[in-house]
């Protein structure tokens, strides 16, 4: 029998875990319906879905295509179960690969990315669990007006630091997509609610620019 590679086995276990996760996710509403004997009318679920599914299914599909190459095999199988990709798991994995000087798409990159995503998932789950347990004590602190600006600005605080690392390395590649996005958001501020849809737009623009610069031997 042929010895299966680490990557093959990761796919095998990844699929096993992710299909189990799908069952577990479905178990949540089913268990609520059964326990409370409260099955909602199909039409209202359908109407409710109609309000969110067209956007979120599209974003979901785009996220799978965009983040799979960045996260590697193990990281992808895990991150798409534990969630919070753009604001946490993807930056965490990118940063870990950067620190360790490994590239995504290599086995080392896959290992580092998986360790980063797994650690991040465990810490997030524990912090939320502790937060829920200590809710009475923590709520006034977390909701204090003094701390509000800190959490309102978590994304600029994250992407400023992450951005400078990547832009300083590839500034020729960065200029066009950055300018495009800045102008777009200034012109249409309401787009900030659907930034997920714009991630692939940014990716397509920067891939096109990269191709052009590469062909002209500029990068």
């Amino acid at each position: 029998m042929a010895i299966r590679s680490y990557d093959d086995k990761t796919h095998y276990y990844g699929k096993l875990w992710i299909w189990t996760a799908v069952m577990v996710f479905l178990f949540i509403p089913i268990s609520i319906c059964v326990y409370y004997n409260a099955w909602p009318p199909f039409v209202s679920v359908f109407k409710g879905l109609l309000g969110v599914a067209p956007i979120f299914w599209t974003v979901g599909a785009i996220e799978v295509i965009t983040f799979t190459p960045m996260l590697g095999t193990g990281g992808t199988y895990l991150a798409f179960v534990t969630g919070n990709l753009t604001n946490l798991k993807v930056p965490c994995a990118i940063n870990a690969m950067e620190i360790n000087n490994v590239k995504s798409g290599t086995e080392e990159g896959d290992i580092v990315s998986t360790i980063a995503v797994a650690t991040s998932s465990i810490v997030t789950t524990l912090i939320i669990a502790v937060g829920v347990v200590l809710l009475g004590t923590l709520t006034p602190i977390l909701n204090s007006p003094m701390l509000k600006p800190a959490f309102d600005n978590i994304l600029p605080a994250l992407f400023g630091a992450l951005g400078v690392v990547y832009i300083s390395k590839n500034w020729k590649l960065a200029v066009t997509p950055m300018l495009f996005m800045a102008v777009l958001f200034i012109a249409v501020p309401s787009l900030s609610g659907s930034v997920g849809v714009l991630v692939p737009v940014g990716a397509i623009i920067s891939i096109a620019v990269a191709r052009l610069l590469y062909k002209k031997n500029i990068i």
Binding site: M70, N170, L173, I186, V199, I205, S206, I207
Partner: peptide
């Protein structure tokens, strides 16, 4: 080019979020 492609994808994500900062 394969490596550059992944870097470009990172850049796409980063530029979307950095652009969003300008929305207000």
């Amino acid at each position: 080019w394969g490596e550059l492609l992944i870097t470009a994808m990172f850049m796409g994500m980063i530029s979307a979020f950095m652009g969003m900062v300008f929305s207000n």
